[in-house]
Design a protein around this nucleic acid. Structure first.
Lengths: 160, 160
DNA sequence: ACAAACTGCTTGTAAACTGCAAGTGGAATG
DNA sequence: CATTCCACTTGCAGTTTACAAGCAGTTTGT
């Protein structure tokens, strides 16, 4: 695990800079997909099974994701985000806002990104608190940003 | 140029998600390296010549960079950032802050990232205005964030 | 005028990564 | 007790990356 340089941006690129890592994290974060099957079955981009497996393994090695056993289903593994991954929320917000503004993003799929960008730092903080509840067992916060984002997406899907 | 999906985060990953694109943009942005030779000669990570050439070509195709002739040197090409690339400053700020916090970044090289994160949105805006001056011919702003970042780096290099 | 160095690449080759289809072995379901 | 579910693994072809070397036009030094 020797790195090319100690520059923070380079290190971030070394961890996240490939065609799938951020997409998988996005699905866990915003889609709340927590198992291999959910991630594969709901993948908008059609991730291949071997890529998903290798990416989950690498994300665990890098400390972004942990695996937990499902008490109701011995075969199923539940993937949880770590604090390190939850701290990527601001990166996701900026990346989503940039893509929505400069790339040919679909209006419906942009609704979440736009809502999150307009919500400002407060909304990002509240979302991180919600993720800490869902993934790290922290107390349930009053606000559900996930529900708000889903509502924004549904509203955009209604009005074309 | 058919995309995997219309999700803004996915589109951003398709454009920026590889091992070098963001690193090259970082060097143009924060190092103010403007030619092939400067980018190759000052590369902290030792980018290979063919990779640099192919990345610059791709960044031009994606609309992040434009090439201009150097009036003093017929052979030399000066690369300029577009507004689309300058709009990546907030992404860079968040990515740098994340890397500095969670990855084994060198304190000296983190100084710029930390200073930029602490400067908040105002500092990012001022930096974008400076980049518009350097790359797009906009009027020169009063504040030089580039100089402030260099000072922060020098200060960190002095006090180990 | 002419050689040396500079500038921005291209080419060759090997290794690594990606994408697709198929298969595997155990667990739950009916 | 056969079928489906689940989380992968394997094989293989194609693409991308890494490293080293080379190359043609430009500028610099004497």
């Amino acid at each position: 695990m020797d790195r090319r340089s100690g520059c923070p941006i380079n290190l971030s690129v070394e961890v996240l800079g490939d065609r799938w890592s951020l997409v998988v994290l996005r699905d866990i974060m915003f889609g709340n997909f927590r198992t291999y099957g959910e991630l594969h079955g709901n993948s908008l981009e059609g991730i291949a099974t071997n890529i998903l497996a290798s990416r989950l393994k690498r994300l665990m090695e890098e400390g972004l994701v942990t695996a937990a056993a499902d008490p109701n289903h011995k075969q199923r593994t539940i993937y949880n985000l770590t604090e390190m991954a939850i701290a990527l929320v601001p990166v996701m917000v900026q990346l989503g806002a940039w893509g929505a503004q400069f790339l040919p993003a679909s209006p419906q799929l942009s609704a979440r990104a736009v809502a999150l960008a307009q919500g400002g730092p407060q909304m990002a903080d509240d979302f991180m608190a919600e993720l800490r509840h869902l993934h790290l067992g922290a107390p349930k916060p009053g606000r559900s940003v996930l529900a708000e984002l889903e509502a924004a997406y549904q509203a955009a899907a209604q009005n074309p």
